[in-house]
């Protein structure tokens, strides 16, 4: 149990001391995971809306694929991205393996199915009559869609938080495509794994606690926005 307490002390020290290495790791964690989440939203929001609202053959199969993708092991995604980015692979000329960009690509691939599936579910739970009403009131398609997003904002925010949670906590893909290079691609999860394999348990726990703190900070911000006017006063 001592090691848990030491880890807590280490975490506070790392945060207060302004240790440059730790802050580089923290900044990179935020940069990679938030960018990946943003890309997943950009791609997943329209796709999720199409799957939820349009009528076309294969729609249910697509939805099932997205639902499956939510459970995709990060290490498998990492392996695919690694093979694509290998020097001998189709995208090898870009020289992207072991860079933050590669990590963003892999994490966006992990988060996109989460966004698609949860956006589809969020939009479908809005009463179908709502859209009919919007159109009856003379709203054009864009405005009707925007109103629909507003109506579904609670589950949409929940989906965003789920996507962020999926990427900020994963280690398999980050390790494989990033390589855990110090000062370049080391994030909190891979740093914690390395510290563990070096027997530096309290440092590993410190990284874990900082990761929790960051995830909490991001989710708190999103939750505050989400809950505005959510509960009638």
């Amino acid at each position: 149990m001592d090691v848990l307490f030491d880890g807590f002390v280490d975490a506070v020290e790392l945060l207060l001391s302004g240790d440059e290495d730790s802050w580089t790791i923290i900044a990179l964690t935020l940069r990679v995971s938030l960018t990946a989440t943003a890309i997943a939203l950009l791609v997943g929001l329209p796709l999720g809306a199409i799957v939820a609202l349009a009528r076309f053959p294969g729609r249910r199969v697509l939805l099932a694929a997205a639902n499956t993708g939510m459970g995709m092991p990060p290490v498998v995604v990492g392996l695919f991205v690694t093979v694509l980015l290998w020097r001998s692979g189709p995208l090898g000329g870009l020289g992207l393996l072991y860079t933050p960009t590669a990590m963003i690509v892999a994490q966006a691939a992990i988060a996109t199915p989460v966004v698609i599936a949860l956006v589809a579910a969020a939009l479908q739970q809005v009463d179908p009559d709502f859209r009919v009403q919007m159109q009856a009131l003379g709203a054009n398609r864009v405005r009707a869609f925007a109103a629909l997003l507003g109506e579904a904002r609670l589950p949409l925010f929940a989906g965003t938080m789920a996507a962020f949670g999926a990427v900020v906590s994963e280690v398999g893909a980050a390790q494989m495509v990033g390589g855990n290079l110090v000062g370049q691609t080391r994030v909190l999860t891979t740093a914690a794994v390395l510290a563990t394999s070096r027997g530096q348990f309290s440092l590993a726990i410190a990284f874990g606690l900082i990761l929790l703190l960051i995830a909490f900070g991001v989710n708190l911000s999103l939750t505050l926005v989400q809950q505005q006017r959510a509960v009638p006063r």
């Binding site: 940069r31 938030l34 997003l149 507003g150």
Partner: peptide, 27 residues
């Protein structure tokens, strides 16, 4: 609804890109 939707996407995008410069010289 429009405003919230836009604000939500912009906020996440800004958060993602906004931290990039602060990641500092090395990375």
């Amino acid at each position: 609804g429009i405003l919230i939707g836009i604000a939500w996407i912009v906020a996440v995008l800004l958060a993602g890109c906004g931290t990039a410069p602060s990641a500092g010289g090395p990375s």
